[in-house]
Design a protein around this nucleic acid. Structure first.
Length: 311
DNA sequence: CAGACGTGGGC
DNA sequence: TGCCCAAGTCT
């Protein structure tokens, strides 16, 4: 049977990076937009940083977009993607999983591809009483022993699909699983108990002020420092985020935004003069600014307060 | 090496 | 509401 042609490394790389910690539903339309805008890695390598970051807005984990740009430029300079996992692993934003996935899917390298789905399948099948992190090496060895020399990419994607749909975290469908007969977790009657879960730290609250500086139908936006939260992204200017609650001022809007490791209470207050390096963004063209969700919501809260006043 | 790093959806 | 989870990487 003639196999399907291997997918282009560029497409595999772009989709794998987008899918890191991000759902297929969120990625699919954004992936298509990206490909339309930058059909080749040469095109992406030649793009301006702010255009790529703007296109990434809303997808989260913005270090991925910064690394995407750096990676595209390295690959363009090399002339092509490295064709082995070891070579791919050296590129920015490509870790152990992504290097293996690209190597298997785009280049047919028989290598263990272990994402969180595959890890869960193996932990359950082998009945490992540990977290995924604790058993990382064991899991990789088991997957390596299962990976076929023929069509390793299809095998990898099948294992990920099995974990995502059948061997899912909640309510796994063991009755539909081809591995159920020899699965320790299925035999235990409580497959959901696997894998053991890490304890999570409590999420502290931080407070911040965003400045609303408006003139002639435009607002003043700035670009955040490249390091740290929302690095390099367009933003409303404002204070640092602190654990001390600032004295309450009359706010034009306010939001509560949950990040992974803290909750932010952000008040939007009127401000007179433009501060720092920035630009006037027409309110009618605000969507073009590529604001991350935090600031998109902050802006919306101001408009909502306004329309409430007008009503 | 545990924590930093976004966001949206499910229950 | 709150917690879990998602095709992880970097430091």
């Amino acid at each position: 049977m003639p196999g399907e042609p291997a997918p282009e490394p560029y497409r595999v790389w772009l989709s794998e990076v987008m899918l890191q910690q991000t759902t297929v539903a969120a990625v699919t339309p954004r992936f298509e937009r990206f490909l339309q805008k930058w059909p080749t890695i040469e095109a992406l390598a030649a793009a301006r940083d702010e255009d790529v970051l703007s296109e990434w807005a809303g997808l989260g984990y913005y270090a991925r977009a910064r690394n995407l740009i750096a990676c595209a430029r390295e690959v363009a300079a090399l002339g092509d993607f490295p064709d082995t996992a070891a070579g791919l692993r050296k590129l920015p934003g490509i870790g152990e999983y992504t290097a293996a996935a690209i190597a298997a899917i785009a280049f047919g390298e028989p290598i263990a591809v272990v994402d969180t789905n595959v890890a869960r399948v193996i932990i359950r099948f082998a009945g490992l009483e540990s977290t995924i992190e604790q058993s990382r090496d064991t899991i990789r060895e088991i997957v390596a022993s299962m990976t076929p020399a023929d069509r390793p990419g299809d095998f990898a994607q099948s294992m990920m699909d099995l974990g995502a749909t059948i061997c899912r975290p909640k309510s796994p469908v063991c009755g539909a699983c081809p591995l159920a007969e020899d699965c320790v977790a299925a035999a235990s009657g409580e497959p959901e108990r696997f894998p053991a879960r890490k304890q999570r730290a409590a999420r502290p609250v931080r407070y911040g002020i965003a400045h609303w500086i408006e003139r002639n139908g435009a607002i003043w936006l700035v670009r955040r420092p490249r390091k740290g939260m929302l690095g390099g992204m367009a933003a409303l200017p404002g204070s640092d985020w602190t654990e001390e609650q600032p004295k309450s001022r009359s706010a034009l809007g306010h939001i509560t935004h949950d990040f992974t490791h803290f909750r932010l209470e952000l008040a939007v207050v009127a401000h007179k003069s433009a501060t720092g390096d920035g630009w006037w963004q027409k309110i009618d063209d605000l969507v073009d600014a590529g604001l991350p969700t935090l600031y998109r919501r902050a802006v919306e809260s101001v408009f909502q307060s306004r329309s409430a006043l007008a009503a």
